[in-house]
Amino acid sequence: MLKEMNVELPVLPTTVIGSYPRPRWLVYAVKLYRAGRIGVEELREAFDDAVQAVVREQEEAGIDIPSDGEMRRDDMVEYFAERIRGFRFYGPVRVWGNNFFNKPAVVSRLVYEKPIVVEEFQYLRRVSSRRVLKVTVTGPYTIADWSYNEYYPSKEDLVFELAKIINSEIKRLEEAGALFVQVDEPALTTSPKEMEWAIDAVNEVTKGVNIKLGIHICYGNYELLANYFDRLRFSQLALEFANRGFRDIGILDRLGDKEVGLGVIDVHSRRVETPEEVAKALNKAFKYVKPEQIYVNPDCGLKLLPRKIARAKLENMVRGVEIVRKELRERGLDRIPLKR
């Protein structure tokens, strides 16, 4: 059973998955920094300013639970690997087309030396007007799956070690006052034969944590995932549905009392969804889950979209939610408690 926290949100809280397009001037500042033409302090100032800009943009769009847009992160795995001792980088590898990432290699025992994203959260809290904020951390399975393992005897050993580290990080976030942490695990369903222990490993990150924890899994095998819904110790599953034309939405009837972060915006298309389309998607989801169980978000991070389009998509997402909220209010459903 989920437990209520002492915080209320409007019904169908709107949120983001995490990343948001970097302002063009920030991209330029990062280039200057890499070329040695500005220093680390100037870069930090640019990051801070960018966070202020994109948080404000989310809030103006009407988002109830913003993130810092992951402005400081080039890549979700690289960023964590750079801050955990035991990783090494040999150079970029291609992911698709002409897109590369710095795939890390585990070369010695992994050590959690200091908090990774706690300062990000603290800055976000300073600049946002919202009470509930979303902090994203990359999950242990995805970090391991997108790394080379030169040190641990098996992938399973590596994932469990990373789970301890991510668990420590979430505890630091809780101490710092975070209310909602989302663990990003896009790779979780990649290898069906590893799912049994992978679920146990991602559950390790929740141990001893008393704040709201969500897990985000996208572009994966949801039929397979649904077999494990009851074993996942997260109060919310943020899933991508718009990209797959809301196929597989029927899996939500196996969600039990957990919440869904319903992906209603396709982040790989530049077409801006209409509010009516968003409202229709929500009504579709109501066939399987109660409105109180639904948070509303894009399918995935928005970082690859042009900034204008990302903003327009969020605005229409909120407008679509408003259409449905109006109907729910007439039925007496206005606010919901934050649950963990």
Binding site: R94, V95, W96, G97, D145, A187, T190, S191, Y219, H268
Partner: peptide, 28 residues
């Protein structure tokens, strides 16, 4: 770009969205 492209466009196929290439963090 991947095992199927650009050949697929030479042989009359259209090119759709990204798909994971087996169990790799590589997409085609």
């Amino acid at each position: 770009d991947d095992l199927f492209n650009p050949l697929s466009s030479y042989i009359g196929a259209e090119v759709n969205g990204l798909k994971r290439f087996y169990d790799n963090n590589f997409f085609f």
